[in-house]
Design a protein around this nucleic acid. Structure first.
Lengths: 112, 112
DNA sequence: TTTATTGTTTCCAATTATGGAAACATTGCA
DNA sequence: TGCAATGTTTCCATAATTGGAAACAATAAA
């Protein structure tokens, strides 16, 4: 595997790393409604503002959200709608897995 | 945020965690062609078989691939085609980000 | 059975990610 | 200017992830 290919895989992995945390998924989900400032999001989850800020900056670094200063507030908004497809994809896969698991335990619909 | 919701976000994050490693992305990409046994994949990347085995078991735990014993070999194959969409989604987002970055440096196509 | 092949699990050391507190920066307002 | 509100960065302790070696398990072949 050449270096360029390796870098490509690393880039993709970085994108998934940005999504690999429950709080970050939640933040993205929240930003689907509308823009939010850091303090609102931190209050919602009940965490320190510094923690929220760091998670948001990770999402921003991945190009999934962007920020805009508004006075002392910093409002974050969703920018890569593609990420929503990814999250839905993950959701579908989880549900599919659960369905298979149930089939394995009590195969009613599958007769093979 | 109630516990059930929290668990849902954690599940999605787990799915992305499974994808959050260059080697695992590579393995998925490889399995798109056909089934491969652990030794083949380990040799391809040039890593210890134990490492490959562990990565594969993570992908399996996420329900993205499945295994089948064939003699002393264990062949892994892709099962959740949805994951390919996710990877393509990530790829598109990365390219989009790169394009924006270029626009920011030298805005030729964007005149606003 | 003995040996070889293939995978998995278990250990360990090193790296990375995380959360919270404190320090610091920026902006708005009196 | 002085003070309050909001975010970011830095520091630290803790937790999680990772890769490799070795031990172990399972199967095939001699």
């Amino acid at each position: 595997m050449d270096e360029r290919t390796e870098r490509r895989y690393a880039l993709r992995a970085d994108m998934f790393k940005a999504l690999a945390h429950p709080m970050r998924i939640f933040l993205l989900d929240k930003l689907r409604e509308r823009s939010y400032c850091v303090c609102e999001l931190a209050a919602e989850v009940g965490i320190d503002k510094s923690v929220a800020s760091k998670h948001l900056s990770q999402l921003k670094a991945a190009g999934l959200i962007e920020d805009q200063k508004r006075g002392t507030l910093v409002e974050y908004s969703l920018v890569a709608s593609c990420v929503l497809e990814m999250v839905e994809c993950a959701e579908r896969t989880i549900l599919e897995n659960r369905r298979k698991q149930l089939d394995f335990i009590s195969p009613e619909s599958v007769s093979g």
